[in-house]
Nucleic acid binder design. Sequence first.
DNA 1: CTGCGTGCAAAGTATTTGCAAACCG
DNA 2: CGGTTTGCAAATACTTTGCACGCAG
Lengths: 143, 143
Amino acid sequence: MDHNHILKELKLKATPKRLAILDILYHASIYLSPDEVWTQMKERFRTIGLPTVYRNLEELAGRGIISKVIHPDRKLYYFFCGNREHHHHFVCTSCRKVNDLSFCAFEEIQKEVSRTLNATVSSHIMQVFGICSNCSANKEEEQ
Amino acid sequence: MDHNHILKELKLKATPKRLAILDILYHASIYLSPDEVWTQMKERFRTIGLPTVYRNLEELAGRGIISKVIHPDRKLYYFFCGNREHHHHFVCTSCRKVNDLSFCAFEEIQKEVSRTLNATVSSHIMQVFGICSNCSANKEEEQ
DNA sequence: CTGCGTGCAAAGTATTTGCAAACCG
DNA sequence: CGGTTTGCAAATACTTTGCACGCAG
């Protein structure tokens, strides 16, 4: 995964900090808070400010390289998602792993909104929470 | 709409403040922030604290009498929704009006999650944003 | 070079909490 | 009367901003 290349493609300077943030999310394979990313960044850099982490996460999310989790606690969480197509996510509430879903009922929604409300859809969000196979397997073990 | 009765059914004391908050949301017909509810409360009560508004909104939402909007700005917004069945909402990003949707692809989602991830769904969120018929009509006028 | 990126310090601000007093049932 | 509910003040904590310096292209 050539993050350097990805950044250049988006006309973002490939700074060490930026690359590291991408790398951390890429290898985490779970969603992380800005603070958690910061903690990992501090292991790689002597000086690294929390605002830099916030700014980069927001920037990268804005360009679609990483995605945000919609979380009930209303805090920010990000994860790496290489899928460029429109899609939604399954979030494991136990281990925080995020998986792509291919199902999207956009057509049907648009149809209902148009028919019953005569309104226009501009966007929609959807997210599925649950327990992934790994986590439910671990739970079995514990018993 | 007998809010007094609703509260008693849920074993919540029907205090004037609580009833007023419900009443405000009920008549607003759009989603409101705690602060906006507070502003309206101050017109009805000489003393009314913002924490009281926060606490009641959260309490009422917890019991399902009112609902929360999932908002990109990650702030709290509530609206009155009498529908007790599981359903989702269409939110007009122009006037903040919220409409019920009946479409829900829960079955299909569960099927995909189970088949492709072998995971278990515990909950899901979904919300549709757009422009309601009133707002798009008004825009036409302006042109 | 030159403008984007970063560090640091500081501000902002929605949301919560603690506790004593008031109040509903 | 007894457990809720409320007001007020204060705290929390996440997130953002300003500005001067540094670095990638």
